[in-house]
Amino acid sequence: MPEGHSIHRLARQFSDVFVGERLAVSSPQGRFADGAALLDGRVLESARAHGKQLFLGFEGGLSLHVHLGLYGAWDFGGDSTFRGASSIGAPRRVGEREIADGGAGDGGEAAYAGPPPPVGAVRVRLASEHGWADLRGATVCAVVTAPEVDAVLARLGPDPLATAQPRQRPGEEFARRLARRRTPIGRLLMDQSVIAGIGNVYRAELLFRARLDPATPGSSLGRERALALWADAVAALGQGMRDGRIVTTDPSFWPLPEGELPEPRDAHYVYKRHGQACRVCATTVLLADEAGRKLYWCPGCQSI
């Protein structure tokens, strides 16, 4: 499932290529025909992410609410003026790296003749004069009002990447939410009502970087350790948003020239490294089931 940094990159891409444009909205698949009809011909006014939730705000107070889930993805394309043609979402299909997909053929504006015929089950198509975006496979795809957007946000915890949040001090709010729960921290980090945007990769890597045993109750962390965990989440997801990939290891572990990102095998400390030696202490990295999701950790480093 795409984690929070990918959804914020999506919001930024929509802002770059569609905000301020009057869009043609359709549902080639047909499942979203009624919702598309409500949005068709309206100007897109904003694009906002909170955790794994994306809200595209249209004139008239309506928003398109999308949660990609495990299999959802957006594809983009357009002419030479359409910045950022790519695919974002569904890591099993396109990976953490966005994949270039220039829709103008040879890259020239004159070659662009509008969106291509839909391929597969396209739930929603957004199209402007210069480009298009197709949504497939999303868990949530709905037209919502402003009060309904507020209701979704009220159910979510603070987002390490959100610049404007209803709570003035999101790190303190995160610490308060942990302090109220004796649930293991390895489960709390995946609870979107505690912190929004963390998925399986960031969960494993943040706990390793904090040297935290995943079984540690949230209430036992204390304020200072909780705030340190929050600060590292802000840094890690910020790096992911900048690079378009989740890279959590220190550059000293990368056998590459300075400034280049590592290969996937060198990008993580423990995620998908079960049975291998820990990069730091050489203890075997373990794998367990935690509430139906795979949890990776090093029992040597993560003993606090």
Rank of each mutant, 00 (worst) to 15 (best):
G60Q: 09
G60F: 04
G61R: 11
L62Q: 06
S63E: 11
S63C: 14
L64W: 05
H65L: 15
H65D: 12
V66D: 13
V66E: 09
H67S: 13
G69F: 15
G69L: 15
L70H: 14
L70R: 15
L70T: 12
Y71C: 15
A73S: 14
A73R: 10
W74Y: 10
W74E: 07
W74P: 09
D75I: 01
D75Q: 04
D75P: 01
D75M: 02
D75T: 04
D75E: 08
F76P: 08
F76G: 05
G77D: 01
G77I: 01
G77E: 01
G78R: 00
G78K: 00
D79Q: 10
S80T: 07
T81G: 05
F82I: 07
F82N: 03
F82D: 03
R83Q: 12
G84W: 07
G84I: 02
G84S: 05
A85R: 05
A85S: 13
S86P: 05
S86W: 10
I88D: 00
G89M: 12
G89C: 13
G89A: 14
G89Q: 08
A90M: 08
A90Q: 07
P91T: 06
P91W: 03
R93Y: 11
R93D: 15
V94K: 09
V94S: 14
V94L: 12
E96G: 12
E96R: 11
R97Y: 15
E98V: 06
E98C: 03
I99Y: 14
I99A: 14
I99M: 10
A100E: 09
D101C: 02
D101K: 01
D101S: 03
G102S: 15
G102E: 09
G103M: 02
G103H: 00
A104W: 01
A104G: 03
G105S: 12
G105M: 03
D106T: 06
D106R: 06
D106E: 13
D106A: 07
G108D: 11
E109Y: 06
E109C: 04
A111L: 10
A111M: 09
Y112N: 01
Y112W: 14
A113N: 08
A113D: 04
A113K: 05
P116L: 01
P116E: 00
P117R: 03
P117D: 05
P117I: 02
P117G: 06
P117N: 07
P117L: 07
V119Y: 07
V119D: 08
G120I: 10
G120A: 12
G120V: 13
A121Y: 13
A121D: 15
A121L: 12
A121M: 13
V122M: 07
V122K: 03
R123S: 08
R123T: 10
R123Q: 13
R123V: 09
V124D: 06
R125A: 03
R125T: 02
S128G: 10
S128P: 09
H130R: 01
H130I: 00
G131P: 10
G131Y: 05
G131V: 03
W132D: 00
W132N: 00
A133K: 02
A133I: 00
D134W: 12
L135R: 04
R136Y: 05
R136H: 08
A138K: 12
